[in-house]
Write a protein that binds this DNA or RNA. Sequence first.
DNA 1: CATGAATGAGAGTTCATTCAT
DNA 2: CATGAATGAACTCTCATTCAT
Lengths: 192, 192, 192, 192
Amino acid sequence: MVKLQKSIEKRNALIKATIELVNNSGFHATPMSKIAKMANVSPATIYLYFDNKQDLVNKTYLDVKAAYTKHAFATYHEEMSVEEGFEIIWKRIADFKLKEGENAMFLAQCDNTPMIDEHSKQEGIKHLQPLLDLWERGKKEGIIKPISDYLLYAYAINPLSFLVVNQKRGVFQLDEKNVLEAYEAAWNSIKK
Amino acid sequence: MVKLQKSIEKRNALIKATIELVNNSGFHATPMSKIAKMANVSPATIYLYFDNKQDLVNKTYLDVKAAYTKHAFATYHEEMSVEEGFEIIWKRIADFKLKEGENAMFLAQCDNTPMIDEHSKQEGIKHLQPLLDLWERGKKEGIIKPISDYLLYAYAINPLSFLVVNQKRGVFQLDEKNVLEAYEAAWNSIKK
Amino acid sequence: MVKLQKSIEKRNALIKATIELVNNSGFHATPMSKIAKMANVSPATIYLYFDNKQDLVNKTYLDVKAAYTKHAFATYHEEMSVEEGFEIIWKRIADFKLKEGENAMFLAQCDNTPMIDEHSKQEGIKHLQPLLDLWERGKKEGIIKPISDYLLYAYAINPLSFLVVNQKRGVFQLDEKNVLEAYEAAWNSIKK
Amino acid sequence: MVKLQKSIEKRNALIKATIELVNNSGFHATPMSKIAKMANVSPATIYLYFDNKQDLVNKTYLDVKAAYTKHAFATYHEEMSVEEGFEIIWKRIADFKLKEGENAMFLAQCDNTPMIDEHSKQEGIKHLQPLLDLWERGKKEGIIKPISDYLLYAYAINPLSFLVVNQKRGVFQLDEKNVLEAYEAAWNSIKK
DNA sequence: CATGAATGAGAGTTCATTCAT
DNA sequence: CATGAATGAACTCTCATTCAT
């Protein structure tokens, strides 16, 4: 008996449509029917892949967050020095935010909005552990300021979200020069 | 269209209700009827003060943004040195974000979401001019890095939004010590 | 200030439409939109008068049950003898079932179906107390068989429901002669 | 339309599932998918055995009705006296309603609801002929009241449905003593 | 024969907005 | 000025049924 399987492509198309439409209109202004149409399926089909609208957006968030952190740590090794490691990770993150603007936008909206379950948010954070470990090491070595990880993240990483959102709005353009300046600012803000 | 012959209090109550409800549920998940109830008026009354829901939220955004910048620049004078001026303004902003958490949350959601008209967003930025002027001066004097204002804002000011949002979520606590550390990080990231 | 009030007529029209449509199609085969149409209101209006579909049908059941028992006991007094009292009540019930066929049908469907909340069913039974009291008296006086009230009801009253349902189906006709025969059968089945 | 080349067991499982689910939730609140799940088949498989949902429930009704009457007349012979014959049949019916509560419940719901096609209802009645013949004989012999068969059925047989429904609801308990009392009431109501 | 995936049609319900008072 | 009642439009979600395998 050949087991038919719900196509992974359909799931991906739904996730992709969700990201694009939520970016442009917001969660509640995006009807399931539009998501279905963009993914070329019937509205009813969505419910074969996700429990409901909330589940769809939660899963989308986790998918994107996973892709984000996977990209961030792809070239990082724990043997690297703190400074080198941070630069590697930071630039990968910047790379992600630049190349995957839609995904980055989506995360920004999720993180500043009550649209994602708190539980899923917690889940999404877990993937960041390597960066927190790196900072821990940096603090011990006296290279990174001994301050809360939230502060470090707020100054080292989060500004990229602001820049991406404004780039999407068309009022600001991120280019190679900008990125270098941004890295400088990020490092200056957290280095001891 | 003649508006607002009477109660400024009702208008304020509506603005306040909008902020609180949108903070907790998001724009589209907040029905006009709930806003009306919280403001102790009839749903129909809202339309005596605002054209429609979009207008209500736009006006709310502009109101809050105005209060925000008014607070930010209240003790600043153009005669101050760049460094002193920045510190004054930064600390007033931090003060606002701490004391007026609901308002700050609301701005963060507006700025990362398609819920506000682009026109109103543009309008809201204008009030920031004194800070941009200060930075201009700082660049000329060689005190501030000669980089885009968007980069400066991303690193000097925006991290506070991230911190406020996470404070509201209950996963992080801003206190006096934190604020000092944050100021340090902010200044280090933009000073030449 | 003149307080507008939700018109009792609209509520009644909704109840009436519910009875007729549920009689002809059953609870779940009757969409709210049809009920609205028959009552000449918008579907949304139903929700000003009832919490949801289940509430609508529960309230309809209780309304009809109340009308039913009110009619049943309208001419009965506790001073009557058991036999006379029973006859009075029985004939009033028969009268109701004959004249208010739609209502009677509706009750029959409710009582043989899981469409009504158990709580509402319990509520609906309370109105029958005078009949149970009469039977109690009859048992004490040795006029009524000393058997469960459920048995008494099953034989003295419930057969009328069967007859009404079949009359509605068009396969049987209740007339004055029939009713007298039915009363005879009812009385014979419960009298000692 | 060729049906049923194979498993009679699957058909029976579907019938059984239908009865149980419709008893607990009603016809329209019982999805085909649930019936399929309970019968351990795919939803599509149902359509190999039945034309559609309406056909499924009609056939279920006829199956149960046939089992009911088969049980009722199993020990009856036309040579019996009217009184003996009636008692035999009545007690077999009571036996069925007690032992096959689910089936009895199902019939009660079908008979008080528009969920079964009128055609199938007519079909279902035909099996009752031996009882009607017995009553005919009883009337001729002056033992049974010369009244409509519908009246006879309403008082002699139908009360058992009421009792079963209420037993299922848990508010009344049928036992051997009750059954005897019920038989007494039944016979008294129709005997001349 | 049997299936899991897919879907169009339609269900119940909500809500921004209007209107008679 | 202010309102409660009313509603059309649109939402999320379900389900009987079909179809490729």
